[in-house]
């Protein structure tokens, strides 16, 4: 082993000079191509982290960062005593949880159903349509949803004609419906997209398992329960863990766009809170503290999720 190393070294020595030169030149060229972007990312991603200091100060607009009065954890203390903040945490967690449950059940259900379709054409059509909403912006989606939920919209018409409700409901003005409307909107937008990954996992299941089960007289439901579901269990667990890491990301756009003045007590998430206090009310230090709270908890959860996934023998996640 060491003999070969020596030889390689000697070999390198002979050619040392010209190679070193070209190497250096090559490194220089690579640096010219990459260092501007290093500067870019430091400015746009790391300088804002420096701005976190605001949270420990009483920041005044237009002042120099380090010259402001230091207040320690006062902003955080105020945050946790703020009724509004407690409320937005409740809303965030509630909507996250609803999204998580609805999202998982619906997309796994769709994948199972699609997997049972035998006609390739039909399967393709359903799939193509089902992930279209994923690519629409939330502004467009919110407009579509609002039309459907309007007082003379399709949802009211349908429910009235089925005698489930007596009179049309103003869905978006009732605060107790808001979380569920967000949950349903998310399902509508993401069901097809989320199902793709399960469908991909299903294609890796050995077809001979199904054949063997058929010979043993298993029906379709039993095959789903004992072959398909166990076959995708790994990916379900991984995605579940990953999603728990994102529990404070209940979303921002859909709530902000669909909320009406009547439902703000139930619609505002942490992100909306930060926007409202920071940009609208110019309470920069206070809003930054709320933002830091969210980021720190999220990172801890994400790292824990990664570790958990790793321990379960899976590859590291983002």
């Amino acid at each position: 082993m060491s003999v070969t190393v020596e030889r390689v070294k000697e070999h390198a020595k002979i050619k040392k000079r010209p190679r070193k030169w070209s190497k250096l030149r090559s490194q220089k060229a690579l640096m010219v191509m990459s260092i501007p972007f290093l500067v870019y990312v430091i400015i746009f991603a790391y300088v804002p982290l420096y701005g976190w200091m605001m949270a420990f100060q009483n920041y005044k607009l237009g002042s120099v960062m380090l010259e402001n009065e230091w207040v320690g954890l006062a902003n955080f203390k105020e945050l946790f005593q703020d009724e509004n903040f407690i409320r937005v945490i409740r809303n965030t967690l509630a909507m996250s949880f609803i999204n998580l449950v609805f999202g998982f059940v619906s997309s796994i259900g769709l994948a199972l159903m699609l997997n049972e379709v035998r006609k390739v054409m039909f399967k393709r059509v359903v799939q193509t349509v089902s992930y279209l909403p994923h690519f629409l912006s939330w502004v467009v989606a919110a407009n579509l949803i609002m039309n459907v939920l309007s007082i003379d919209g399709a949802v009211n018409k349908l429910l009235v004609s089925l005698h489930i409700i007596k009179e049309p409901i103003m869905w978006l003005s009732e605060q107790h419906y808001f979380w569920w409307i967000i949950g349903a909107s998310n399902v509508w937008k993401e069901i097809g997209w989320s199902a793709i990954i399960y469908l991909a996992a299903m294609t890796t299941i050995d077809p001979s398992l199904y054949e063997a089960a058929s010979i043993d007289g298993a029906g379709r439901f039993r095959k789903i329960r004992h072959i398909t579901l166990p076959g995708i269990r790994g990916i379900i667990v991984i995605l579940l863990i990953m999603n728990i890491g994102h529990i404070l990301d209940a979303g921002f756009e859909q709530q902000y766009l669909l909320q009406t003045p009547m439902v703000v007590d139930y619609s505002e998430t942490i992100d909306i809170f930060v926007l409202k206090y920071g940009i609208n009310l110019s309470r920069f230090s206070f809003a930054t503290a709320a933002g830091i709270f969210k980021t720190v908890i999220s990172v801890v959860l994400l790292l824990a999720a990664n570790r958990m996934a790793k321990r379960m023998g899976q590859e590291r996640l983002f």
Binding site: L49, T288, G291, T295
Partner: peptide, 15 residues
């Protein structure tokens, strides 16, 4: 690293 940590809305706005 930037995938995990971001400065958040207000510091980015200031930047």
């Amino acid at each position: 690293f930037t995938m995990y940590f971001s400065g958040g809305l207000i510091p980015t706005y200031m930047l």
